[in-house]
Design a protein around this nucleic acid. Structure first.
Lengths: 213, 213
DNA sequence: GTCTATACCGTGATAGAC
DNA sequence: GTCTATCACGGTATAGAC
């Protein structure tokens, strides 16, 4: 599984996270992977094929990413589980940032290249489905369609916040706060009594959040 | 105001909406604008300068876009005003789609080009501020920081839904439904009594919304 | 200000040895 | 499978006439 080919794909993900999909130069990728240019053309037919495989790779990794978080944590506090899974995408570690940026690039690229859309829609759907399940546990009173809709909103919000983060319009910490607030807004609608103190998370530190990165 | 230079910028926006920022070829832009290649280099120093000006142009247009909706509609029903302003961005007309895609490209590009971030953050901030004001009118009971936070969430959600729309993961109509639901979730939290029937908007048609475009 | 023609170079892709 | 060397083309940018 960890042959030269996959090494190249991993390197490609790094380069994409650094330069973007259309900023990727085969030469730079070769250097990053520590191989020659032609070896890349040996393993992948051409630049387009390389890109396709890399984006599949990113897509797959995103799948596992959301599915992997050991089956354990999903039992005790459903709301905490939900928060954890969603906040996972808004962490300032190399790994997450790399994946997040690459995923954003995948989305952005798909706007102009229809070939990528199928993969994208499939992975997105999986993610939404997972979140909907977590929502159902955190809010047993709600209906399935309502959970699905909330999951679509929350995951779309995560993507929206991510680009703002990566494009320097929003510090990560503030993004995390906002996401927590959104989860609160979604859950408190069906549970007006409220069980935590979502108001604190929702309001804290906002209003002056925009700025450099 | 509508000289050759601005014509080129308008054409550049169209090309960017069609090919993306990094997909823009000076030659293609020249053809689109009906001028020669070198005229573009006459008006703008180089490709980078052209891009900078174009992105400024898009940024400015986005400013007016959200500010323009005649001062009139902002009086009667505050909640309807809010919905109108936000849903404006999710309309399937050439003009809106063009602007929306170009704006998304601006964001995506800024991830890899720090020079663009300042403009981006400024325009975003303006937008968020406007929405926060509308929220304050629609929900006089809430605090200013809460309104600011909600505005950041709603605008980020609009951006998230937009890319999903443009990348073929989400039909516009469904995106609009989801956005309405989010507005409901934000407002109903502070007004548990509820004045409309947000549940209908939130649940309708969801669960099977993903698919081709 | 606007054009035509062209120089130059970065980058994708191939040939062929090992 | 992996390398070095090289080609060919597309695209940015410029020269110079009008």
């Amino acid at each position: 599984m960890s042959d030269r080919r996959t090494e190249i794909l991993r390197a490609a993900t790094r380069v994409i996270a650094r330069r973007g999909v259309r900023g990727l130069r085969v030469g730079e990728l070769a250097a990053e992977a520590g191989v020659s240019t032609s070896l890349i053309y040996y393993h992948f037919s051409d630049r387009a094929g390389l890109l396709r495989r890399t984006l599949d790779f990113i897509s797959d990794r995103a799948d596992h990413y959301t599915a992997e978080p050991d089956p354990a944590p999903r039992t005790e506090d459903p709301r905490a589980d939900l928060e954890q899974v969603l906040l996972l995408e808004l962490q300032d570690t190399v790994e997450v940032r790399e994946n997040s940026i690459a995923w954003g690039e995948l989305r952005a690229t798909a706007v102009f290249e229809p070939d990528l859309r199928e993969d994208l829609a499939r992975t997105t759907h999986t993610w939404v489905h997972d979140v909907a399940e977590l929502l159902a546990r955190a809010d047993p009173g709600g209906t399935a369609p309502a959970h699905a809709a909330a999951a679509e909103r929350l995951t779309a919000l995560v993507e929206g916040l991510s680009v703002r983060w990566h494009s320097g319009s929003l510090p990560v910490e503030h993004a995390r706060l906002l996401l927590r607030g959104a989860i609160g807004a979604e859950l408190d609608r069906h549970d007006p009594a409220g069980r935590g103190a979502p108001a604190a998370a929702a309001g804290a530190g906002s209003g002056v959040g925009f700025g450099r990165s």
